[in-house]
Design a protein around this nucleic acid. Structure first.
Lengths: 239, 239
DNA sequence: CATGACCTCCCTATTTTGGGGGAGGGGAAA
DNA sequence: TTTCCCCTCCCCCAAAATAGGGAGGTCATG
């Protein structure tokens, strides 16, 4: 069985997976098939919702959640703004908190080597597909060299499957801002003040204020800063 | 040749593609192989950079860029906040501008049917992989029914290939904010004013001001709103 | 052990924003 | 045709943010 046929087999198996339980079964099978210590898929969205499945010990998962390690984990920090897969070795482990975290993770049976693929989900979810293993650097380098491409495809297939289980929440507030409101809020997000916005849009400063107030109201925002934050988070403006 | 073997073949072909020119060749081959009118991959990032390859007539591409149709295109608007593939029929074509755009697109040879897969890229790029075709609804429904899964995988494979050509710009300002600054800016983004932030963090309002000023400076922001916008855009805070 | 980065506190003055009123014209939809 | 939303303009005044100074502590890194 060639590597590519194996990949095909995996993707088909994943396709058959049924619900969250199915994903759990699939990821365990995948872990065994690729012969690594652990394999994990999880996502978290801006509202705080999260989902995960994988082969980490339940105690570690519980510990991670209890301690809100999401905010400390260098893997999260290092992957959050990227998309390319990263080897854990390339991350910044210099801080004290990072090293403590790493030590604790290893004590719970998480491997000393790891490889994570960051992906984005439908409603701003930040998803991560991770393989981890215990072993020396040379073996791990060989493993990643061989399986990176497959990992990418598997990660994406997993992401799609997992997110298919989520309702495709159409953002009902998506078109909540009028064009002029978008203009005004966008310019404010770019650092302009009201006078500059007014000049740029060649309207009076008072009119700008009306737009911003209207946008604030529609976004349920307490002030301009809040409105801009919400508009960006909801994808209503591009900055 | 089974469907899955064809997929395997396509993914391998894509793997071999070399540079932008290779992607262009690959997408044209793919278009022929899947027997549709057009196939397009493109992305745009928040800085305004964009990249695209595909089979649309050059005149249409030029027109699209000249007119900045990105801001009008209902496919963009409808896909921007999502991740799930969408059939163009499901989009909102009700506005006058949308219909005018659609009419013009068709006049340039873009099919009346379409199917787009939105994806995210490394530096916040918004990528779209699209298949379009001319035909009646029934035929198109049958096509999408049959090829959705393959399209997803192809889209992701394409995305990775295309983004591999881009430098993996590690955000050097990624850890630019101190923990306290992150706290303050996050709370401001949540709509708190300085007094509330101070109370929440149990520090003086003046200290909050120092953090915000420092954050503004680090982010090169003109004011708090700007700083929040940048912090969100750069993934430094999660709101 | 010095330098620099971080955290914490305080002053005054100026600029910007927000809240409260309005008012008129246009266009789309019901 | 009426209703509703969007765009545009104006007033005044209170509240909040910003700019410009400064000062003292910890902690890590070099």
């Amino acid at each position: 069985m060639t590597a590519s046929t194996a990949l095909e087999h995996i993707l088909e198996g994943l396709e058959q997976a049924d619900g969250h339980a199915g994903l759990q079964v699939a990821i365990e099978a995948l872990r065994d098939e690729m012969n690594v210590d652990h394999m994990v898929y999880h996502w978290v969205d801006s509202a705080g919702d999260q989902y995960g499945c994988g082969t980490y010990p339940a105690e570690w998962v519980q510990r991670y959640l209890d301690q809100n390690y999401l905010r400390v984990d260098p893997v999260i920090a290092g992957c959050y703004q990227r998309f390319h897969p990263v080897d854990w070795k390339r991350l910044d482990w210099s801080s004290k908190a990072s090293r403590a975290f790493q030590k604790e993770a290893i004590s719970y049976g998480v491997g000393n080597q790891g490889f994570s693929v960051p992906i984005r989900g439908p409603n701003g979810q930040f998803a991560l597909f991770t393989v981890s293993h215990s072993g020396n650097d040379a073996d791990w380098a060989a493993f990643t060299e061989e399986h990176t491409r497959s990992m990418l495809l598997i990660a994406h297939a997993f992401n799609h499957k997992a997110l298919d289980l989520e309702p495709d929440r159409t953002p009902e507030h998506a078109q909540a801002l009028s064009p002029r409101e978008v203009d005004a809020v966008t310019l404010l997000a770019m650092g302009y003040n009201r006078a500059q916005v007014a000049q740029t849009l060649t309207i009076s400063e008072h009119t700008v204020r009306v737009y911003v107030e209207s946008a604030r109201f529609k976004l349920g925002a307490m002030n301009t800063t809040h409105a801009v934050a919400r508009a960006i988070s909801r994808g209503l403006i591009v900055v």
